[in-house]
């Protein structure tokens, strides 16, 4: 992969040729009031690819993935998910949200519902599955994230790591085409980060398309197909983990890595 970068403009982070593009973001711009959070972002992701987004806090990485399922509205540019362009069209928005799963930093499990109800809520209400089917699928994914026995508990009764795994199962049960992870381990105690990362590594190996915003460099190095480094709303550098961690080109990347590693 080639890296072309100048400090003042955003780098294009195109997916490798040959793959089936599932996410295409082109010239994306977003402002919070006067503050320009995303500047000319171009990023595409192939099917079964794992893209890891890193960067200092406030660099716009979370905003970027929140734009993909329209939790934030962008002002300029084009976002296409699985061939559907994200516009003001309610139908399109709903379609894209159905096809993207999201895992949040703060888990955002619904505290008034049991684990099982948390997971089956959307399949029943949005996908219109029968309850039996939804529960069966839910059990399958709970098994997959390693906590089948917690189905009838409330989120408040689980540890942070378990909650985050439920959140992953909840997103997976909708059988999305893309999974978005927004700093999934940042709110966890150090001793349970491992269990969540393990689940994510397994997912990556199974060929699920993932965009992961994280500070876990180990994860990026191990399973990332590409690493995207963002700073001040721009993509500064893109590359394979190997390239990225051994031979970064940009000054900003180097300085960031030197602080974090």
């Amino acid at each position: 992969m080639t890296v072309t970068a100048t400090a003042s403009t955003s780098v294009r982070a195109d997916a490798p040729h040959g793959g089936q593009k599932i996410i295409e973001i082109e010239d994306l711009n977003k402002w919070f009031g006067e503050f320009h959070v995303l500047r000319d972002i171009t990023l595409s992701v192939n099917k079964a690819e794992v893209v890891v987004v890193i960067g200092p806090s406030g660099s716009g990485k979370s905003t970027l993935i929140r734009c993909i399922n329209r939790l934030e509205e962008h002002q300029q540019g084009r976002i296409v998910v699985d061939g559907v362009q994200l516009t003001d069209d309610v139908k399109k928005i709903d379609q894209i949200r159905r096809e993207t799963g999201m895992v949040f930093q703060q888990f955002n499990l619904f505290p008034h519902l049991t684990v099982m109800e948390n997971i089956t809520l959307a399949p029943i209400r949005v996908r219109r599955w029968k309850r039996s089917k939804a529960e069966e699928r839910a059990r399958y994914f709970l098994e997959k994230v390693g906590i089948p026995e917690q189905a009838n508990k409330y989120p408040g009764q689980l540890s942070g790591g378990q909650q985050q795994r439920v959140a992953i199962a909840r997103a997976l049960t909708m059988e999305p085409k893309v999974m978005l992870f927004d700093e999934p381990t940042s709110a966890l105690d150090p001793e349970v980060i491992g269990e969540v990362l393990e689940v994510m590594v397994n997912l990556a190996r199974e060929g699920i398309t993932m965009i992961v915003v994280t500070h876990e460099m180990g994860f990026a190095r191990e399973v990332g197909d590409r690493v995207v480094f963002m700073d001040r709303g721009q993509i500064v550098e893109v590359g394979t983990p190997e390239h990225f961690f051994t031979n970064p080109q940009e000054e900003r990347t180097k300085s960031f890595l030197s602080k974090i590693l």
Binding site: T9, E26, D40, Q76, R78, Q85, D88, D89
Partner: peptide, 24 residues
């Protein structure tokens, strides 16, 4: 920096009853 221009590509027509902004 790239010019600030609309780059949404070919704009499809959205029926008004499905447009979030219009609905509001």
């Amino acid at each position: 920096m790239a010019t600030r221009m609309r780059a949404r590509g070919p704009q499809e027509r959205i029926p008004f009853y499905r447009n979030v902004k219009l609905l509001g």
